[in-house]
C-alpha cells in the first residue's frame, strides 16, 4: 500500500461498492474453479451439504482440492487435516502483511478481514492503495460469495458439468496476479528485484530442493521480502 494515502472519508456504502468492483476479477477467476471443485467433490460422493460446508468453513481452494483427492484415495482424516494445515500456513505471512497496513483499525475488523485472506484477496487488497476496512470487506465478501456460490452451482449440477470445466480457465487467476504485479514493476525497480528473487527462490525450492509448493512459497516470499528490507530501501 502506498503509505501516503490516509483514511478515506467517503460513505461506507460507496467504500463497500468500490470493494466489490475491485474484486470482480477474483470472482471471475473463482467461479469456474469453485464449480470444478463442487463437481469433483460430488463425484467422490461427498454430499451437497458437505461440499458446500467445506467451501463455507475452509475457504481455501488448494487445500479443498487436495482434501477431495485424498478422500478419493481413502486417506485418513487426520492426514487430510495435517496436510491442510501445511498448505494454509502461508496465510500467516500474508495476514501479517495485511494487518500491518491496518494500523488504527478496530481489532474486531482486523479479525473479520483476516478470515477473508486468500492469495487472491490479499494481493488485490494490499495493492489497491486503500485500507478502509469497509472497502476491504467488499473485496473479501465478494470473493467469498463467488467461491461458495460457485461450489453450490457445481455441487448441484455436477451430473451435467464436465469436471474439466476449470481447465481452460485455470490461467485466469495467474493472469490476475500478473496484471497486479506488472504495473508495480513498472512503477518501481525494487519491485522487479523482490518479485524476481521470489520467483527464482520458489523455482529452486520446488525443482531443485523438491520442497512441497506450500513450503516453497512461504520460504521464497519471506526470503525475498527480507533481502530487500534494508534501511535505505523504500518500497
Amino acid at each position: 500500500m502506498r503509505a501516503s494515502e490516509g483514511r478515506e472519508t467517503r460513505p461506507h456504502a460507496a467504500q463497500f461498492w468500490t470493494g466489490i468492483q475491485v474484486a470482480l476479477p477474483i470472482a471471475v477467476g473463482y467461479i469456474p474453479i469453485a464449480i470444478a471443485f463442487g463437481v469433483m467433490a460430488r463425484q467422490v460422493e461427498l454430499s451437497l451439504w458437505d461440499t458446500a460446508l467445506m467451501s463455507i468453513l475452509v475457504y481455501a481452494g488448494a487445500s479443498q482440492f487436495m482434501a477431495v483427492n485424498m478422500l478419493a484415495t481413502g486417506a485418513g482424516g487426520l492426514e487430510i487435516i495435517l496436510a491442510t494445515l501445511v498448505i494454509n500456513l502461508r496465510h500467516v505471512v500474508l495476514g501479517l502483511s495485511l494487518i500491518n497496513l491496518l494500523k488504527g483499525v478496530r481489532p474486531a475488523w482486523k479479525g473479520a478481514l483476516s478470515l477473508g485472506v486468500t492469495d487472491e484477496s490479499f494481493a488485490v487488497a494490499t495493492l489497491s492503495g486503500r485500507n478502509h476496512p469497509v472497502f476491504l470487506a467488499g473485496i473479501m465478501l465478494s470473493a467469498y460469495l463467488a467461491w461458495v456460490g460457485g461450489t453450490l452451482l457445481g455441487g448441484m449440477l455436477y451430473q451435467f458439468i464436465p469436471p474439466d470445466i476449470g481447465n481452460s480457465m485455470s490461467i485466469a487467476l495467474y493472469a490476475m496476479f500478473i496484471s497486479l504485479l506488472i504495473p508495480e514493476m513498472r512503477r518501481e525497480r525494487k519491485v522487479v528485484m523482490i518479485a524476481g528473487t521470489a520467483m527464482l527462490i520458489n523455482a529452486l525450492g520446488t525443482e531443485l530442493l523438491g520442497l512441497a509448493s506450500g513450503w516453497s512459497i512461504i520460504l521464497a516470499t519471506l526470503a525475498a521480502s527480507a533481502l530487500f528490507a534494508g534501511k535505505g530501501e523504500k518500497a
Binding site: 492469495d119 490479499f122 496476479f177 497486479l180 504485479l181 523482490i194 521470489a198 525475498a224 521480502s225 534501511k231
Partner: peptide, 20 residues
C-alpha cells in the same frame, strides 16, 4: 515493517512462477 511491505510483491512473484 519494511519486510512486511515487501510481501505483496514477493508473494505475487512466488505465486506466479513456476506455478503458471
Amino acid at each position: 515493517d519494511r519486510l512486511l511491505k515487501n510481501i505483496p510483491y514477493a508473494a505475487l512473484g512466488a505465486l506466479i512462477f513456476p506455478g503458471v
